[in-house]
């Protein structure tokens, strides 16, 4: 490993700070793939991998992609949560690589919730 200079460290720190900022708030959307044991055994890594490939193909820069633990509904895994800035988060269930690509296209890019893959749509109307 080459010698690290103080300037190098400062530059890296600045770059990391920049990407962290993007991660923490500046993204226009955030996608969280749930990676609990249940999610992983149901295929969450495939869902994540499909998303990563879409990000790479399209060179997506303004969307945060992350993973988290079990979302509490193990029988409906793999699950992912899509949050568009300023809108309510949507939980998608029973995902596959094809479904997540479609969700990316229609919801993240197109702005329309893919109701047929969402956990629930609307709430508490009784008539």
């Amino acid at each position: 490993m080459p010698n690290i200079k103080i300037e190098d460290l400062a530059r890296i720190q600045e770059q990391v700070r920049h990407t962290t900022l993007l991660r923490e708030g500046a993204g226009r959307a955030k996608i969280t793939v749930h990676m609990g044991t249940c999610g992983i055994s149901a295929g969450a890594r495939k869902v994540m991998d499909a998303l990563l490939k879409v990000f790479e193909e399209r060179d997506i820069k303004d969307i945060i992609l992350t993973t988290s633990g079990c979302a509490g509904l193990c029988s409906r895994e793999p699950m992912a949560t899509v949050e568009i800035a300023g809108q309510a988060p949507v939980k998608y269930v029973d995902l596959t690589d094809t479904k997540i690509r479609e969700i990316f296209e229609r919801h993240v890019m197109g702005g329309k919730v893919v109701t047929e893959y969402a956990l629930a749509y609307g709430s508490e109307r009784t008539h």
Binding site: I12, T19, E56, I60, L65
Partner: peptide, 11 residues
């Protein structure tokens, strides 16, 4: 670290 910090998620 340098390569990773210079990129977004896709990169």
């Amino acid at each position: 670290a340098e390569a990773l910090s210079a990129h977004d998620a896709a990169g």
